[in-house]
Design a protein around this nucleic acid. Structure first.
Lengths: 333, 333
DNA sequence: CTGAAAGCGCTTACAG
DNA sequence: CTGAAAGCGCTTACAG
């Protein structure tokens, strides 16, 4: 591997000048040319370790996440990685798999690798993680939930309650009043928030809550399948349904098919998270869409600002959803 | 941040002795105790950049992958990350998103970060990537496909053809002869291999190939949905079906439900990749299971060996699948 | 704009 | 087993 020294020798300047040019400090035109040429000829690349040692910046951020099997996270991370790289940062990954032992290990890994900041993806962010980073003066921004009791940190997530609220109101406007909801387990921040939006919307529209019509289970296909089965076995079935998670939707669809429930004739459907594949179904589903790219943008720019030394008060950034109305909701006016 | 110098001062030994102890070289018992104590008190952690600069090992490996939205990859990566960390390595991630421009960027990122090796996840590994790493003496192991024309490199993947072969033979043993297959597009190595296994098994069992019964499409839900629709619209329907991908399976199930096809009475089903959720369905599906954990193990240990300097000839490591027979295959003997 | 020099925090022969 | 010293490849005041 060529070093800055080789470049200096070959281009007839000092290593200081080479370093300056590499770092964007202007040098004499003729020197610039000679240095660039030497770099090209020798295939020089700066040694990241040496630079990190000197600057105390590893140009690396740690991504801590519950699980890689969460497709919403992988979608966001995909954009995150791109924005980070555009800013010269690489991402190192660590899955907690919902174990606090592993959470500790992850933080240790990041600290030993000297990451410049942490992106913490969690559906139920823990105070302790954020607190620990704050103590170590390690910038951290949390994505997808708000830690219950942290005064001064950054969170970026979907406007969960408002988007469920809007979905239910849309249903009401089309004349629905028998509206059920399928959402995730209590430990997930978004599952609670979306439920809250549902309840608020019922109240707003003067509809009484029917507890049988609130079905909660795991945020996965199986959970959705079980919820729909329970819903369909009720003496009185709802006429409209909001499903708060993509995987629950797929499970519910299979259950719905098994029981030959016709959508939207017998049941109107609004679901969270649009995926290519949803459009292929008959009927095409009406969906509430989280904006993964915007979440990624905000999270990264917020983290980069902190790394850059910003000490504005911690903020909560809520990203709105969009709604795509298709054929799965019937108007009964 | 405390440095080795602080530890040395506090424990009354030289920095060399501290370094030795940190690196597992025996030191006098009393010194060991004092050093450990100082480390604990000061919360010392070795500076990864300094160590990397000196040792020329970043203790980092690059994971290059087509896409994070491939759940098989994220499953394998989950284990990979764990094995790597147990061996002191961190993983840095880069998605190619099927663009050769990004492939180049990824390689550049890895090289600039000084990774010690690369794990290349691809359903269609490119010669060029591997060749470039070989030229740079950068260890690389490819997961999930074999590059068409690389003499001396390492590949670890599922025994695709053999596992499809076994699945079809199982079907034949239960008396089936009208057997169809749904598999992925031509560019995916595994899609071709699994098809090859299907064809071999037909031949082995003296069954003529019916080209209508070979349906190929994208490796996703939508692809599976389209394939099953095409299959069900044929004048003569098959009585058994092998689906070579999990997402295609979910799509096919929805299509099957829409058309009220009863499994296994009208159609016997064997599918690739077991997931928790599959067991909840009625009927429970008979599945061919890739061993993600074993693939991860082999890939990591192979890469670590190369990083350690092993120069044995390149090898192809094929991991067998297991089959879980449940209720989706009917015996028609 | 340029360069000599110090120093980032480690590891590693080497001599004792 | 221990320690003094060199050096990994950079960046950065500082003086010119």
């Amino acid at each position: 591997m060529a070093t800055i020294k080789d470049i200096a020798a070959r281009s007839g300047v000092s290593i200081a000048t080479v370093s300056k040019h590499i770092n964007g400090i202007p040098v004499k035109e003729s020197n610039r040319r000679r240095i660039d040429e030497a770099i090209r000829e020798l295939g020089y690349q700066v040694n990241a370790a040496a630079r990190a040692l000197k600057t105390r910046r590893s140009m690396t951020v740690g991504i801590l996440l519950d699980s890689l099997s969460n497709p919403f996270y992988t979608t966001v991370i995909s954009s995150v990685e791109e924005y980070l790289r555009e800013n010269g940062y690489a991402a190192i990954l660590f899955e907690t798999k919902d174990s606090s032992e592993r959470l500790r290990q992850g933080l240790e890994l990041f600290s030993s690798k000297g990451v410049d900041g942490i992106l913490y993806f969690s559906s139920h962010a823990e105070n302790e993680v954020i607190r620990q980073c704050q103590n170590a003066s390690l910038p951290i921004v949390t994505v997808d939930s708000i830690a219950p009791d942290i005064p001064n940190s950054d969170f970026v997530l979907t406007e969960n309650a408002a988007s469920a609220f809007q979905a239910i109101c849309m249903l009401c406007k089309k004349g629905h009043r028998k509206i059920a909801v399928i959402t995730g387990a209590d430990r997930h921040f978004s599952a609670n928030e979306r439920l809250r939006g549902y309840l608020n919307a019922l109240e707003e529209n003067g509809i009484a809550v029917c507890s049988d019509w609130i079905q909660r289970d795991e945020y996965d296909m199986n959970g959705g399948y079980r919820c729909i089965k329970r819903l369909l076995s009720l003496p009185e079935r709802p006429e409209a349904l909001l499903i708060c998670n993509y995987f629950m939707t797929v499970g519910a669809l299979i259950g719905l098919n098994e029981e030959n429930v016709r959508v939207p004739d017998e049941l109107s459907l609004v679901t969270f998270d649009d995926m290519e594949w949803i459009k292929a179904l008959k009927p095409r589903l009406t969906t509430v869409n989280q904006q993964a790219v915007r979440i990624a943008e905000q999270a990264v720019s917020c983290l980069l600002a902190r790394i850059g030394g910003s000490d504005t008060p911690g903020k909560v950034i809520l990203i709105p959803t969009t709604m795509t109305e298709r054929d799965s909701v019937r108007s009964i006016l």
